[in-house]
Design a protein around this nucleic acid. Structure first.
Length: 575
RNA sequence: GCCAAUGUAGCUCAGUCGGUAGAGCAAUUCACUCGUAAUGAAUAGGUCAGCGGUUCGAUUCCGCUCAUUGGCUCCA
């Protein structure tokens, strides 16, 4: 254990790296170099374009500096001194950062060797205490994260107190890469992409499609049980619809170009809401029929910038497990509560527990009655509170049309992805003039809530694959059991067993190749088949099957009925 | 979209300092009929991402395009 927090070690490693970069590339202008969750980075501006080989050089220079036992000296300066210091060294980014330091705050620099950096600290006392570090990658990054600013060169690295921990971390990254859904998707033949079809457009292969089908069936069933009705709506709609909804004003960059049909422009839908609203508006609605809970597995298409596409996590065509809840003000609190409970139930059934909740409140520019915002926010807070979830509040981070709760999940490589969302909408009910007739005989404006539980099937599937590393629980495994006859003499008996198990509704396959049983087991394990049934002369004679699971357990010989019972018990586990 | 890297068989990758390519796994065929993580042999499989340029000749060098990867930005 080091006497310093990891953050201090990492931040100091960032300084060490900057010092090495200054040594190797003296014309470098420096921006900032913070510690992160997984390591550290530093942003540089220089003429020279860094190449991957440079990482080794820089790392070498860092090690040299480390071994010189250089002290980290804290230097206090007045604002004027600091300005002069940075101006003399032509550090324009640092000058701007200096201007951000609040008036009255002590300005400090940290000097280590030749490198002296505007910095709040703290640091380790001596370069020898930076611990074990390694540089990982080079990336571009806009200055201050703004697209219109120049792009700086960023180097990512990570540091730990000692070599052992660093090694452990690097091993973890390697392990995580093995469960990356993009890799497993190809290996297990779950899904794919085709250059001919286009980027961000998913092709669900049979096994992936089967899993999706199973989950969709479960999803529909649970929605019926929870008082939802299901809708189907078209994939395209006239421009007028999108004008009314406002999408053509504020979401046009996310939409694909219109197609001309009989002289009218039609747009592929980026969202399902306007269609659901049109169903709502197909007749006069009474308070007696509220709340309405309308769900749809709605496939939408959005233009996502080419650089952001990522496996199944960020695509251009995807299916949301969407629903809209339309209700009265009296009903809203309970509706929100139930949605959140339902949401957590679904995630739990899928085997996930570590969701992080984010609450986004009213931004400066917003539409809708402030009182309604207040009620909405309260109902969200209450629901989260009752569910006992930890929540991070993003003050002013809501959409202009309403507050929301988002749930996020981390992928195998630690990147966070938004999945569930529960959003109020004070905009569309106005734009479409949605009303219901109240008890008083007058027309009232209903509350409308958008929600998606899994988010989209594509993103959800990426998380599911990584969560289970491809070893899906039995109820969603595309192939639940594989029958492995030892020789051709058992083929007939194997086929009998196969037929019976299929009749009972299990997803079973046979491996009738003339391979050794060891080889068949290897392949079945590689395919993450939950159960294998081995059939040799002994079993064929006794009318049994020798069962083993992918977890390497030998489960022994059992009858067909016992096997079926065992499988069924395992299948029902998630409920 | 921006900064950078990469693109060779279905998959993982080697290779060619410019003379049209190779391995392992997978596939197919044949032999083997086998007891719990790899039986053997043979065969087939590639416009070396695409287009253009330089060259006697380009998979290799150059340019553009497309796609992927790592980031940034964005994500109603």
């Amino acid at each position: 254990m080091s006497k310093y927090p990891l953050e201090t070690i990492r931040h100091s490693a960032a300084h060490l790296m900057a010092a090495a970069v200054q040594e190797l590339f003296p014309d470098t202008k420096f921006d900032i170099g913070p510690a992160t969750d997984a390591g550290f980075y530093y942003d540089f501006d220089m003429e020279y374009r860094l190449v991957p080989e440079d990482l080794k050089k820089i790392e070498g220079a860092m090690n040299k500096l480390k071994n010189q036992n250089l002290p980290f000296e804290k230097i206090e300066m007045s604002r004027e001194e600091a300005e002069k210091f940075l101006k003399d060294r032509d550090q324009s980014y640092k000058l701007e950062r200096l201007a951000d330091v609040p008036e009255g705050e002590q300005i400090t620099f940290y000097k280590m060797g030749e490198f002296c950096d505007l910095c709040r600290g703290p640091h380790v006392e001596n370069s020898s205490e930076v611990g074990a570090f390694t540089l990982l990658s080079i990336a571009g990054s806009y200055y201050r994260g703004k697209e219109t600013n120049p792009m700086l060169q960023r180097i990512y690295g990570t540091a730990f107190a000692d070599r052992k921990e660093l090694k452990k971390h690097l091993m973890q990254i390697e392990e995580a890469k093995k469960r990356d859904h993009r890799k497993l998707g190809t290996e297990l033949e779950l899904f794919g992409f085709s250059d001919k079809v286009g980027p961000g457009l998913v092709l669900w292969h049979p096994k992936g499609a089967l899993i999706r089908h199973i989950i969709e069936t479960f999803w529909r069933d649970q929605h019926y049980r929870n008082g939802y009705e299901l809708l189907y709506t078209p994939h395209i709609g006239r421009s007028e619809l999108w004008e009314t909804s406002g999408h053509l004003d504020f979401y046009k960059e996310g939409m694909y170009s219109p197609m001309d049909i009989d002289g009218t422009d039609y747009f592929v839908k980026p969202m399902n809401c306007p269609f659901h609203i049109e169903i709502y508006k197909s007749r006069i609605r009474s308070y007696r029929e509220l709340p309405l809970r309308w769900a749809e597995l709605g496939t939408v298409y959005r233009y996502e910038k080419s650089g952001v596409l990522h496996g199944l996590s960020r695509v251009r065509g995807f299916t949301q497990d969407d629903a809209h809840i339309i209700c009265t003000p009296e009903q809203i609190e309970n509706e929100i509560y139930e949605v959140l409970q339902f949401c957590l139930f679904i995630w739990d059934a899928m085997g996930f527990k570590n969701l992080k909740a984010y609450l986004a409140t009213r931004p400066e520019k917003a539409v809708g009655d402030p009182e309604r915002w207040e009620t909405a926010l309260k109902s969200l807070e209450k629901a989260v509170d009752k569910a006992g979830m930890d929540i991070e509040v993003d003050e002013g981070g809501g959409a202009f049309y309403g507050p929301k709760i988002d749930l996020k999940l981390k992928d195998a490589l630690g990147r966070e992805w938004q999945t569930s969302t529960i959003q109020f909408d004070f905009n569309l009910p106005e734009r479409f003039d949605m009303t219901y007739v109240g008890e008083d005989g007058n027309r009232h404006r209903p509350y409308m809530v958008h929600r998606a539980l899994l988010g989209s099937f594509e993103r959800f599937f990426s998380l599911l694959v990584e969560h289970y590393a491809g070893s899906f629980p039995l109820w969603i495994a595309p192939e639940q059991l594989r029958i492995l006859p030892i020789t051709e003499n058992q083929h007939e008996y194997a086929k009998e067993m196969f037929k019976s198990l299929r009749q009972k509704g299990f997803r079973v396959e046979m491996d009738l190749r003339s391979e050794s049983v060891g080889s068949k087991i290897k392949d079945a394990r590689h395919a993450r088949i939950p159960y294998m049934a081995i059939i040799g002369e002994r079993e064929a004679e006794a009318g049994t099957l020798s069962v083993r699971s992918r977890r390497e357990d030998q489960l022994g010989e059992m009858s067909l009925d016992d096997l079926a019972e065992k499988l069924q018990l395992d299948i029902d586990k998630h409920l």
